[in-house]
Nucleic acid binder design. Sequence first.
DNA 1: TTGTGTGCAAAGGGTTTGCATTAAT
DNA 2: ATTAATGCAAACCCTTTGCACACAA
Lengths: 145, 145
Amino acid sequence: MREMIARLHSQGGRLTSQRRLIFEVLQEMDSHPTAEEVYAIVNQQAPNLHLSTVYRTLRWLEQEGLVSTRHFQEKRRTERFDSSHPAEHHHFVCTACQRVIEFNSPYIDHIKEEFTLDTGVRVERASIELYGLCADCQAQSKGGL
Amino acid sequence: MREMIARLHSQGGRLTSQRRLIFEVLQEMDSHPTAEEVYAIVNQQAPNLHLSTVYRTLRWLEQEGLVSTRHFQEKRRTERFDSSHPAEHHHFVCTACQRVIEFNSPYIDHIKEEFTLDTGVRVERASIELYGLCADCQAQSKGGL
DNA sequence: TTGTGTGCAAAGGGTTTGCATTAAT
DNA sequence: ATTAATGCAAACCCTTTGCACACAA
């Protein structure tokens, strides 16, 4: 939040009530919401706030490196916004409840190194998604049978 | 191709000239084309063949497990169709020339196992994308300076 | 007061669908 | 002869954009 205000000021930007609200809501959502999902919540507290404002704010945050975006493999082909720490991290998505768990692993560097040695490319970033059932959903599907 | 015909017949489907052409073109394209890219080529040989037919054929192939789809991180948010061997594999994308290199690594299993042990999830599949510069584009950017 | 950000409506790009017609079986 | 698949156009969904007004600085 401080971060956001600082960046706004340093480029002649303005802190509007809309930007503040969108940013706050985004940080409270621990999942990786779509623009529409952010809008749905934000809109309850500010009924006039328009979806296009949500997009514009999200894009500005993206450009500033305060959020990043992802596409998970899902039916509706929508972009998801990730407001957590900007360092590289990866995602597990539960295919039953859609819950997202973030993770990291030193093996990822091994993969990058191995691939670099094999092919001579320069790897700049990696994005890993794991899909499956979270512990809760496994339990539930067992119980249900 | 045989595979495709077999599946068509086994479910009362028909092998049309359009399906044959789309499938052939798709397999000759070693990259991971968008529907529009497939259409552009296919359309040269069959000017009446409509984009919606490309989509329908691609979706049918996807459903049959003969192609899979991906989203790479790129400006235009388009789906890419992958006709290579259906076994799990992963992708490096050159951010300069868009070239795609497929790869695999035993470390991927380590990542899955590690994450499973840590969290109790059941991992069903993984999708890894690496981004960077391929060897050619590195050489070119050096030469260009 | 100044000009950035907003609300709104309309356009945009990628993908899907309904329907009359064509063509594989 | 049947009925699945196609061509076409229109609809769809997600996202962006143009413009007049509002409001943070």
